[in-house]
């Protein structure tokens, strides 16, 4: 995982004698990686199983661990008029199950969108606040998906917790101001992982989750929403955190990162790179 604009200065060693300041920066890049085989996360991998290149230069992966950091999850849920009825009921149940599956130190926020975007519950550990807000959702209006994603990213607290947006929509954007490219640019600048559950296939959601190294799941029925929401959380929990110190590459500009498996089979999802 990378923080802020993609580069984490993980260790800043400051030596401070009385009169003169010498600083040595050791830059460690963290990349969070999902490894899936079919619908199941692949577990038990070590640094020897990963090959990582930074701008085409093979790097030494220094550590691999299953990430135990708490999560900041923002549920970004479509409440446009097409949700009216059974689908909204199922969405509330899915959100409720998701909220209950969070760990005590995880936090969650609820953003809903039709043409209007609302931060219904700011980031909190209070599960009941989220569940209560979910139960009071109403379906009405058009769909401002892109604007809602932008707002949710801007509101992300960017602390030491890992940030996840779980986006649900049952249709396509109809009224956002922002273009796809503008939102994708924001996503690339942020360190947020975005998973999406959708009912109709949507090219923007595919591009969005790809840029945010997340996954998109297609619900074949409203009954599936609960299972897919839980799967999104499971996937986030099963991610590996790879760290390395870039060697043999220029420091400035965009760094293209490619991660592959050497000794195991699985589909890898990782951020395509970072800027510094």
């Amino acid at each position: 995982m990378m923080k802020g604009y993609g580069l984490l200065v993980a260790a800043l060693l400051a030596v401070q004698p009385p009169q003169t300041v010498f600083r040595t920066a050791v830059e460690v890049v963290e990349i969070d990686v999902s490894v899936m085989r079919g619908t199941q996360p692949v577990q038990g991998l070590t640094s020897r199983d990963f090959a990582l290149t930074d701008n085409g230069v093979l790097q030494q992966v220094e550590s691999v661990m299953i990430d135990r950091l708490p999560l900041n999850v923002t549920l970004v849920l479509d409440t446009s008029k097409s949700l009216f009825g059974e689908r909204l009921t199922r969405l509330v149940q899915a959100g409720d199950a998701f909220t209950q599956a969070l760990r005590p130190d995880d936090r969650a926020a609820l953003v809903t969108f039709s043409h209007q975007i609302e931060l219904v519950v700011p980031m909190t550990t209070d599960r009941q606040a989220i569940r209560s807000a979910l139960a009071h959702m109403e379906a009405n209006g058009s769909t401002a998906l892109r604007d809602a994603v932008q707002l949710a990213i801007a509101l992300d607290p960017r602390d030491r917790a890992r940030s996840l947006l779980l986006v649900f929509t049952d249709g396509h954007d109809t009224v956002s101001w922002l273009t796809e490219d503008a939102v994708l640019d924001t996503v690339r600048r942020s360190g947020v992982v975005i998973h999406a559950v959708h009912v109709e296939s949507d090219t923007f959601l595919d591009r969005l989750t790809q840029a945010a190294r997340g996954r998109a799941w297609s619900a074949t029925s409203d009954r599936q929403l609960r299972e897919l929401f839980t799967r999104a959380l499971d996937e986030m929990r099963a991610r590996y955190l790879l760290t390395y110190t870039p060697r043999g590459v220029d420091t400035a500009g965009w760094h293209s990162v490619k991660v592959s498996l050497k000794n195991a089979r699985g589909d890898i999802t990782a951020r395509p790179g970072y800027s510094r």
């Binding site: 975007i117 931060l119 932008q150 801007a154 509101l155 101001w177 924001t186």
Partner: peptide, 20 residues
């Protein structure tokens, strides 16, 4: 929404969050 996006593009993360 528009301003928040532009402020992020300008690197003004805090301002973008404040607008949100």
């Amino acid at each position: 929404v528009a301003l928040s996006r532009v402020e992020l593009a300008r690197g003004h993360t805090e301002r973008a969050r404040e607008l949100a």
